[in-house]
């Protein structure tokens, strides 16, 4: 009975009169193991249909919106501006005038320091001279002390002379 039904369906199938349900029935029959030998050649046909049905498209499609690409350009522009903001002062920042001014300032500083050094050298010399002055005053003091002793001596001699 089943076979008879299948054969009828196959005739309808070839005349393109089967419905989708009937075609599904045929597919199910030929997917099973008990296919009648004289219908064997249909098997590969329905198997093929069933197999290809599972084939799928796996590649990615690069979907891009115009808007989105515009946003991307905006972000690129923002990054560029940021980079330029960092780079420009570094590359072009100190102008030649600035460099000259800096050099001049350094030279002035050096000269001033030199002058100060000279002054301080003189000061040190003066300090040394002051030391000798102190020595002199010390010896004068000594002299005065010995002079006072001389006075004592004179007094003593005068007493002797009186006596």
């Amino acid at each position: 009975m089943v076979l008879n039904n299948i054969e009828n369906l196959l005739v309808k199938y070839e005349n393109a009169e089967t419905t989708l349900q009937e075609e599904a029935q045929l597919k199910a029959y030929f997917a099973s193991d008990n296919v009648a030998p004289h219908l064997e050649h249909y098997r590969s046909l329905f198997q093929y249909f069933a197999n290809t049905q599972n084939e799928s498209y796996t590649k990615d499609v690069p979907l891009k919106t115009n808007r989105r690409s515009m946003y991307q350009w905006i972000s690129v522009a923002a990054v560029t501006i940021l980079m330029l903001g960092i780079m420009i002062p570094k590359v072009f920042g100190p102008t030649e005038q600035d460099i000259k001014d800096q050099e001049l300032a350094l030279a002035t500083y050096n000269k001033t320091m030199e002058a100060f050094n000279l002054v301080s050298l003189g000061m040190n010399k003066g300090k040394d001279q002051l030391k000798t002055l102190a020595l002199v005053s010390e010896s004068i003091e000594d002299g005065r002390a010995s002079a006072s002793r001389l006075n004592e001596f004179n007094k003593a001699t005068n007493k002797i002379f009186k006596n």
């Binding site: 199938y13 070839e14 005349n15 393109a16 009169e17 050649h41 249909y42 590969s44 046909l45």
Partner: peptide
């Protein structure tokens, strides 16, 4: 339907 029927018959014959 006509075209499909033709195609299916051709397939069956060749198979």
């Amino acid at each position: 339907r006509v075209a499909l029927s033709r195609a299916r018959k051709t397939l069956r014959e060749k198979l």
